[in-house]
Design a protein around this nucleic acid. Structure first.
Length: 297
DNA sequence: CGGTATGATAACGCCCAAGT
DNA sequence: ACTTGGGCGTTATCATACCG
């Protein structure tokens, strides 16, 4: 389930080479660290090294490691990445990195899952998220995904089959849709029912893992989607509300000019969606649910 | 400028009561 | 019965700062 993780380890005792801001490479913790220079001042601003295809940077007394756990461990992220595999991957990461990974701080993480579905059909109905329209994800002059940029998190869905075909020249041989949430942990930690993701240890807390999985599904639910509802079954108010919510431009202005009424309209729309029986959207939701459930093992 | 961090504040969802 | 507006608790965004 986990994709990109940005972890930071605080070094208690820096080697003398770092304290002296040594300008040549040195060995520390069995790794060769090379200085990074500030191009303007030519001063040492940190050190970098790599181990097992992972880049590490040391700045001040913080070693940071930003990478996709799944891609590092499995080579790709078009397959499921289950809890058991996550535990194994972190165990391996801990054995490879020169510090205790489990105690490292985590500020940002991405969770995602894949389902065997045609991406375009899923993406076409996506209208907005919290009132924001998606940015198209482009590759080879083609839109292969949609991404929502919000302050504390990003949500994206895309054609994984297309992506690995154009970027990695790999043919998966079946349609794979990937859905992903990239989020700052503060958003997870400062809410009412906080999940509490502070260190890597928290990532393998089964209860928290489950909550993150739910968070991913919850974001999918929050995406405003074009509804296909049997129109003749709606009353006048519902028809008007439906039309309003399917036009993002008018909706946006409506929200500004009639904010109070907007809230009432939204309520009607929410109820409308609940009673809608869009089989396809329900099917996609179920697929995601099932997929996420499978990553729990 | 883009990425990150942080506290302040605006916006939202929900409920209820009052007005039309 | 439908609409409007206030209160409240929660969440998202804004403003600002820092860094390279």
């Amino acid at each position: 389930m986990y994709d990109t993780l940005k972890i930071k380890h605080q070094v208690i005792q820096l080697p003398k080479e770092v304290i002296e801001q040594q300008e040549s490479p040195f060995f520390w913790k069995g790794l060769k660290w090379t200085p990074i220079f500030n191009k303007k001042t030519n001063q040492v601003k940190g050190y970098e090294t790599s181990v097992n295809n992972l880049d590490l940077r040391l700045k001040g007394n913080i070693i940071s490691c930003n990478n996709s756990l799944q891609k590092w461990y499995m080579g790709n992220n078009y397959q499921l990445f289950t809890y058991v595999q996550v535990v194994e991957a972190l165990k391996k990461l801990n054995s490879v990195l020169p510090f205790n990974v489990y105690n490292a701080n985590i500020h940002y993480l991405a969770v995602g899952t894949v389902i065997e579905e045609e991406a375009q059909a899923i993406l076409n109905p996506w209208l907005s998220l919290n009132g924001k329209t998606p940015i198209p994800m482009l590759g080879a002059n083609k839109q292969y995904g949609k991404k929502f940029y919000l302050t504390d998190y990003n949500v994206k869905g895309y054609d994984k089959t297309f992506e690995v075909k154009t970027h990695n020249r790999i043919n998966i041989g079946k349609p794979i849709f990937r859905f992903e949430l990239e989020i700052y942990t503060r958003n997870l930690n400062k809410r009412k029912n906080a999940i509490g993701i502070y260190t890597v240890k928290d990532l393998i807390d089964k209860k928290k893992y489950k909550m993150l999985a739910d968070e991913l599904l919850c974001k999918y639910d929050k995406i405003e989607k074009e509804q296909s509802i049997p129109l003749s079954e709606l009353n006048t108010k519902e028809k008007e509300v439906l039309a309003l919510f399917q036009n993002q431009e008018i909706l946006k202005q409506y929200k500004i000019d009639h904010s109070e009424t907007y809230r009432k309209r939204r309520k009607v729309y929410n109820n409308l969606k609940k009673s809608s029986n869009n089989k396809y959207l329900t099917h996609v939701k179920e697929q995601l649910k099932t997929s996420v459930k499978h990553t729990l093992f």
